[in-house]
C-alpha cells in the first residue's frame, strides 16, 4: 500500500511537470509570444523593449527555466507567481483564487443534483430491467448525453426566465441564481452516472451471492439495499470523484451562458483580451486540482478494495 501511494505520488509529480511544459509552450505556439501578448499596433521598439523586459529574447530552454524559477520581478510559477494580469493589474493567481469559490459552488451543486437524480433512477432502472421505468430512464440518459449543455442552458432560460419569469439568468447574488446553471452543468454527468449505476447494478445483481441471498429467502428490498448497493457503489464513488474534478474545469460553457462569475468566465474574458498570465494560472491550478482529486480517489479506491492490482 505504501509503495503504491509513493508511486502514485511520483507519477502525479511527473504529470504536473508535463502540464507546466504545456502551459509554457502555449504562449510559444505562434513562435513569438510577443505576437500573442502585444497589441497589434505596437511599434517595433515597444515590442523589442517588451521582449527584453519579459526575457523573451533568450533561448527557449532559458525562458522555460525563468518561467519556473523566476525572472526580473517574477518569482516563477514554482513559487506560485504567474505574473501580473495585464488587464486588471493584479497578480494572475489572485484573480483566479478570487473567482474560484463561484466555480466550486457551481460544480458542487451540479454534482449533488446529478447524484440525487442519477442514483435512484440508475438503481430503479437496473432493478426493473426491461420495464417502462428502464426504458424511460435509458431514453432520458441517451438524450442527456447527446444534448449540448449550453443549449439546455438556453432552453432553461427560455422556459424559467423568459417564459415563466421565475428565476434569474445571470450573475450570482443568491441561492436562486445557482439553480439553472447547476442543472445545465450537471446534465452530462447525470446521464453518465446513471448509465454506470445501471450497468454496475446489473452486473452485481447477476452474481452468485445475490442468487444465494435470494434463495435463502431474503426479501427483494433487502437484497437490493443490503447486498447489491454496497458492492455496486465502489465504481460509482470513483466516478463521482472524477466527475467533480472534470466539472471544476468543465463549467466554462455554462459560466458563459449564465455570466457566472467563476474561473471559466474569467478565462473567457482573459482570452478575449489577450491576458494570458491569467489563462496560464487558471489552467495550471485546475490541472493541479484534477491531479490531486485523482490521487485521492485512487488511494481511497485501493483502500476500499484491497484486491485491485496496484499498477
Amino acid at each position: 500500500m505504501r509503495a503504491y501511494i509513493i508511486r502514485r505520488l511520483l507519477q502525479s509529480l511527473i504529470v504536473i511537470k508535463v502540464v507546466l511544459v504545456v502551459v509554457f509552450v502555449m504562449l510559444h505556439l505562434t513562435g513569438d509570444p510577443a505576437d500573442v501578448l502585444m497589441p497589434e499596433d505596437s511599434t517595433l521598439e515597444d515590442v523589442a523593449e517588451f521582449k527584453k523586459a519579459m526575457g523573451f529574447d533568450k533561448p527557449l530552454h532559458v525562458q522555460y527555466f525563468n518561467f519556473l524559477f523566476g525572472f526580473g520581478k517574477s518569482k516563477g510559477v514554482l513559487r506560485g507567481d504567474f505574473g501580473f494580469s495585464f488587464r486588471h493589474e493584479l497578480p494572475a493567481v489572485d484573480l483566479v483564487f478570487e473567482h474560484f469559490p463561484a466555480t466550486i459552488d457551481l460544480a458542487l451543486v451540479a454534482v449533488i443534483i446529478s447524484i440525487v437524480v442519477a442514483l435512484p433512477t440508475g438503481i430503479l432502472s437496473a432493478t426493473f430491467r426491461n420495464t417502462w421505468i428502464d426504458y424511460v430512464s435509458s431514453i432520458g440518459s441517451m438524450f442527456g448525453q447527446s444534448m449540448p449543455n449550453f443549449w439546455l442552458g438556453l432552453m432553461l432560460i427560455l422556459i424559467f426566465a423568459v417564459g415563466l419569469d421565475l428565476l434569474p439568468t445571470s450573475g450570482y447574488e443568491g441561492w436562486e441564481y445557482i439553480i439553472l446553471p447547476a442543472l445545465t452543468a450537471g446534465l452530462y454527468q447525470t446521464a453518465r452516472i446513471m448509465r454506470v449505476v445501471r450497468s454496475g447494478m446489473l452486473e452485481v445483481l447477476g452474481s452468485d451471492y445475490i442468487q444465494t441471498a435470494r434463495s435463502k429467502g431474503v426479501s427483494e428490498y433487502l437484497v437490493i439495499v443490503r447486498h447489491a448497493l454496497k458492492n455496486a457503489s465502489i465504481p460509482v464513488v470513483t466516478l463521482i470523484g472524477l466527475e467533480l474534478g472534470v466539472l471544476l474545469g468543465g463549467t466554462v460553457v455554462t459560466e458563459a451562458v449564465f455570466a457566472w462569475p467563476g474561473v471559466g468566465f474569467l478565462v473567457i474574458d482573459a482570452i478575449n483580451n489577450q491576458d494570458y498570465p491569467v489563462v496560464q494560472a487558471a489552467v495550471t491550478l485546475l490541472a493541479l486540482i484534477f491531479v490531486g482529486i485523482n490521487l485521492i480517489v485512487d488511494i481511497i479506491y485501493a483502500w476500499l478494495d484491497p484486491r485491485i492490482v496496484y499498477g
Binding site: 504529470v15 471544476l248 468543465g250 485546475l286 490541472a287 484534477f290
Partner: peptide, 9 residues
Amino acid sequence: SALSIPFIL
C-alpha cells in the same frame, strides 16, 4: 497529463 488539463480551456 492531457487528461488533467481542462479540455475546453
